[in-house]
Amino acid sequence: MARLERLTVYPVKGLDGIDLESADVLEGGTVARDREFALFDAAGDVLNGKRTDRVHALETDFDSETSVLLVEAPDGETREFDLDADRERAESWFSDFFDEDLSLERDASLGFVDRREMGPSVVSTATLETVASWFDEMTLEGARRRLRANIEVGGVDPFWEDRFVGADAPAFEIGDVRFEGVTPCGRCVVPQRDPDTGEPIEGFREQFVRKREVTFPEWADADAFDHYYSLMIITRVRDRDRGTRLRVDDPVETVETQ
């Protein structure tokens, strides 16, 4: 049976994610705590993995109840930052680490997601397993950390999510929350890098595109995809379902739209 397998948010944009058992959909249509904080430089540009592979040198954890961020740096020491009460100290430490003047901003109503008019990213477990099989250097958990989806659906076929974008695409429901596919997610440089070391897989993009093309499902709408360097979809939660809670193990059902 199709089910919500994993629910992952990335409290500080560009840093490690945390798995949750449940989370609310915010009124803005995103998952609570996802990209709630982000580091910005003096020009107002965000610092993330697209911009620097230095983010892979950090191992982070986040307590969603207390907003305490733990950061283990390459020197082996772990720093603790209370992002509710002492954000300035975190700003100072990250500024020193990245050698830039950075501010740590917060948006609890929507988060600093890339596509602020859209909602959660969705992929299936089978899709991640398939992609991991394309590269000797990649595991299932590694694929999860490279591709950074919010919602992972189990009990379905590889590339299940592709059916929800394009002309006459159906929607799907997780528990009481309805999702509509908006667009495939074109990938950046981040998935080619080892999430721990930042070491890239040689020829990653070319291999990915070849494999994606030959495994592209015949039932998906190819016109909805600009290129084959795309994986997972970005969705929109309908307005009346915002404020509703998602829970791991919630059933997932396809819904034909009118």
Rank of each mutant, 00 (worst) to 15 (best):
G243S: 09
E253D: 09
V123Y: 03
T183L: 09
F81A: 11
K13V: 10
E59P: 00
G29W: 10
W219K: 03
A169L: 01
V25T: 06
V182T: 05
T197F: 14
L7C: 11
C188V: 05
L58A: 04
D82T: 13
F216L: 06
V190S: 05
R33L: 10
V123R: 13
D250L: 13
D223Q: 10
V122Q: 07
L7N: 14
Y10H: 09
R212L: 09
E218L: 03
L70A: 14
V255F: 04
I151G: 08
L15N: 06
A43V: 06
D84C: 05
A220N: 07
P11M: 02
V214T: 15
L47P: 03
E180D: 05
A23M: 10
F164E: 01
R247L: 12
F81I: 06
R146M: 02
G111E: 00
R236N: 06
E253R: 15
V25W: 05
E117Y: 08
A23W: 14
A132Y: 04
V31N: 08
D19A: 12
L140H: 11
G243D: 07
F225P: 05
S109P: 01
E206H: 04
T257W: 03
G28W: 11
S103N: 04
V177I: 09
E129V: 03
D239E: 15
I174D: 02
E77S: 14
E152I: 12
A220W: 07
V252Y: 06
L102D: 10
P191D: 01
D114L: 08
T215R: 15
V248I: 15
T197N: 14
S67H: 14
G198F: 08
G29E: 08
E21D: 14
L47C: 07
R51K: 12
E253C: 00
D250Q: 14
Q258D: 11
Q258C: 05
E88T: 11
F135G: 07
E91S: 08
D136A: 14
A2L: 10
S103Y: 03
E180P: 00
L70T: 11
E173W: 02
A23Y: 13
